[in-house]
């Protein structure tokens, strides 16, 4: 029998198909926000173009690792040849070509991609009046913010953590024993730790900036200023005053130092000394971004 479309039908639930309680309902809501945010992004062709560019370096490394392991060259030769491609499978790599550096390089693309998607993922909710739509359902402010942040973190991981983990798994898988995985298992928590720092910090900052600026052009300008101009300014101040701490004005530098804290690798002793301060700067600025975001969401909830 076909559906009688002309008349209203009450919701006949499947077994257990009622609206969830506060916890289950909130979880379903957060999952829906994450899903929808990622879906929105993937409907933009430009996103796929940036993703293709962002992932190209990973594809090169993946192919090289595959080829070298299949040639069954001695591991020393394999590692040397990999280094010529600018990558090292060592956990602690003195030439700065390891997983940490791979993630750092990937995060440049992430920055460009985030500048592009902030207006769609967060800005449009404020610009188009979609936020009251979300909040008039069973979603609280914190669930909305959590959903958006998880989606952004997921997106950042797609460019950084996931390729790094795949390369780690690939090399171990194509070698004849599990020695590589056993010897370098600390790489996994290091990748996850650095990925979490990158994800949470960038997601929070982008969400806060996008909530206030909303449109693509201003978001892109402020975002790039934050990472390019502040970096230049910090470098100049450090050079002119001779105070090395000024370099911490550069958020990119702070992220790198915090990442090195996770991997336990520092280029210089000075970097090691600055890394804890860099981590604190990131924590403080991220907290300010979170508070600004909460304040902005509350303002829309009241005035929409």
């Amino acid at each position: 029998m076909g559906i009688d479309a002309a008349h209203y039908h009450p919701w006949k639930t499947n077994p257990g198909g009622k609206l969830g309680g506060p916890l289950l309902g909130a979880w379903r809501g957060v999952a829906a926000v994450v899903r929808t945010t990622l879906l929105q992004l993937m409907r933009r062709k430009a996103y796929w173009a940036i993703y293709a560019v962002g992932i190209s370096q990973f594809v090169v490394y993946w192919v090289v690792i595959y080829a070298l392991t299949q040639l069954q060259l001695p591991s020393g030769t394999q590692r040397g040849m990999l280094n010529t491609f600018g990558f090292s499978i060592e956990a602690a790599d003195p030439q700065d070509t390891g997983y940490l550096d791979f993630m750092e390089q990937q995060s440049y693309v992430v920055m460009i991609m985030l500048a592009f998607c902030g207006s769609l993922v967060v800005g449009s909710d404020f610009r188009e009046g979609t936020l009251p739509f979300y909040l008039s359902r069973r979603l609280e402010r914190r669930h909305y913010i959590l959903g958006k942040l998880i989606a952004l973190v997921g997106l950042i991981w797609l460019f950084t953590v996931l390729p790094a983990l795949i390369l780690f798994l690939e090399y171990g898988m194509f070698t004849t024993s599990t020695d590589y995985w056993r010897a370098n298992w600390r790489v996994v928590p290091s990748i996850l730790g650095y990925g979490t720092i990158l994800g949470v910090v960038l997601a929070l900052w982008l969400a806060a900036i996008s909530a206030y600026l909303q449109k693509l052009a201003p978001i892109a300008v402020v975002w790039s200023s934050l990472f390019v101009l502040l970096g230049r300014l910090g470098f100049m101040l450090s050079r002119e005053t001779g105070i090395r701490e000024w370099v911490l004005l550069d958020p990119w530098k702070d992220l790198r130092l915090a990442g090195r804290l996770c991997f336990g690798q520092f280029r210089t002793a000075g970097d090691a000394q600055l890394s804890a301060t860099a981590a604190w700067i990131l924590i403080c600025v991220s907290l300010v971004a979170l508070l600004a975001l909460i304040r902005r969401v509350r303002a829309v909830e009241v005035s929409a």
């Binding site: 379903r28 929808t36 879906l39 929105q40 188009e128 009251p132 739509f133 929409a304």
Partner: peptide, 22 residues
């Protein structure tokens, strides 16, 4: 308010509303 989610299809938007209701 306008209150729609850009780039979604009609059925996805209504289903999203259901998801958000739990």
């Amino acid at each position: 308010a306008h209150a729609v989610v850009p780039l979604l299809k009609g059925v996805e938007f209504v289903a999203l509303s259901g998801d958000l209701y739990g």
